[in-house]
């Protein structure tokens, strides 16, 4: 393994396959130019190699910076999974209609129960309606521009807070440990999506990043 390979392995650690390939190609070309320049300045091959690697600096620092601007392996996985889910839903019309009908049905039934005075059942159904509409109906809304998507995400978080308040009432804070342990996967995905949004230009966003 050459010095450059060692440097590249460290610098591309935990990056997605595409990002790593991009870094490798760019650094390889850079290294070769630097090596040629050193050799034309009179350095021996081994010294030129050493100088070119030294000029690149610390591979760990570079890796840290690359992970802030290029997709990591876990982010690429989440993007891929999200695309698969979207395709699976959108390619089946009956599934799409069912998922659209679910929150609507839950909200209608919640209103009926509320009018009849069954507040407890209405509350549960309202939470279910809000939850399913957030996850299932939102992709069908016209939110696929940067500004609309930002507004939608604010509304989404407000709806989530409202949902939790409705579901747990005044005990929501007391049961925070339960909420955190149940919702950490959701928060992790949201955090990863926010990170991906920073790394991709809006024109390259897949639909799931708008939500």
């Amino acid at each position: 393994m050459t010095r450059l390979d060692v440097w590249l392995n460290e610098a591309t650690r935990r990056l997605s396959r595409d990002s790593a390939a991009q870094v490798r190609a760019e650094i390889q070309a850079h290294y070769e130019s630097a090596r040629e320049a050193a050799m034309s300045g009179g350095a021996r091959a081994d010294d030129a190699d050493q100088q070119a690697i030294a000029a690149l600096g610390d591979a760990r620092t570079a890796n840290c910076q690359y992970r802030k601007v290029l997709l990591t392996a876990s982010e690429a996985r989440i993007l891929h999974q999200g695309n698969w889910e979207a395709r699976a839903i959108c390619s089946r019309v009956w599934l799409k209609r069912t998922l659209l009908a679910l929150p609507l049905a839950a909200l209608i039934v919640a209103t009926v129960f509320f009018l009849r005075g069954s507040l407890e059942t209405a509350r549960i159904l309202l939470v279910a309606g809000l939850g399913t509409s957030l996850f299932f109906a939102a992709p069908m809304l016209p939110v696929y521009t940067a500004s609309r998507s930002r507004i939608y995400r604010v509304i989404k978080w407000l709806a989530i807070i409202a949902m939790l308040a409705l579901a747990f009432g005044p005990d929501a804070l007391k049961q925070s440990w339960l909420l955190i342990s149940c919702l950490w996967v959701f928060f992790h995905i949201e955090r990863t999506r926010a990170s991906i949004r920073r790394k991709l230009q809006v024109a390259d966003w897949p639909k799931q990043l708008y939500l």
């Binding site: 650094i27 600096g57 910076q65």
Partner: peptide, 18 residues
Amino acid sequence: DFKEGTLYPALHKLENEG
């Protein structure tokens, strides 16, 4: 004088920002 390995992350960041 700077470490050239840090140039590319900066370039990618500028690209992400358009």
